[in-house]
Nucleic acid binder design. Structure first.
Lengths: 105, 105
DNA sequence: AAATTATGAAACCATTTGGTTTCACTTATT
DNA sequence: AATAAGTGAAACCAAATGGTTTCATAATTT
């Protein structure tokens, strides 16, 4: 999953597929690379579960499945409190300084 | 940044440096690879701003700087509403089903 | 039935990545 | 002053990555 979203093209694909189901040909139209290359990116996203494919006639349509991003959210939540600590420490510094140099002085 | 956290060793390093400042030698002790390899991972994290280095005598100590993860949080927030939509859709389905098969039946 | 369209698989290629070993350099320690 | 310790830079290597082109196959259109 982390690997899947590491590539900028793939992140762009996720955004494109956010609430539409699009066939490979049309997806590829948005990118400067070959259709095959796009197809390979889609496969990687699919293996990460970030995208769902559905065959309709001779085309394969893809759409976003954001569910695996929950893992990322959990991972991130772990660090969130640390940067909150940092921000709070900063805030305390600012406030301490204000008691010495009150606003409007 | 996305690239930096794509590697499992580097994610592990972030966790290790969460609230300690540790010299390279000690960091490397936690990993099966060479000190040089760990050092290269640390450099990548450092370039992404996820880690801060400080030279103390002959050693270089590292600690986490979670600030760049804010970008990840923002990226994630964009998709958050989509999976919330999905969860709500699921919830509606379950509730609709319960009106047909009430609980305790 | 023949031609066209949409696609993935395969073979290939250059570059990046994650690792190694060796070496030089700076900072302790004895 | 000599030795040891902590580190990064450099050269090197195998494997992974992101791309290409070509080909086979299945579905659609004519």
């Amino acid at each position: 999953m982390f690997q899947a979203i590491a590539d900028p093209t793939r992140r762009s694909l996720l955004q494109l597929l956010v609430d539409q189901e699009i066939p490979v040909k049309d997806i590829a139209g948005h990118y400067p690379m070959s259709r095959t290359a796009v197809s390979k990116h889609l496969r990687i996203l699919s293996e990460a579960g970030l995208v769902v494919e559905r065959k309709v006639g001779r085309e394969t349509r893809y759409r976003l499945d954001p569910e695996p991003l929950l893992e990322l959210k959990r991972w991130l939540a772990y660090y969130e409190r640390y940067w909150e600590n940092r921000l709070q420490a900063l805030k305390r510094l600012v406030e301490a300084d204000e008691s010495v140099h009150p606003r409007g002085e």
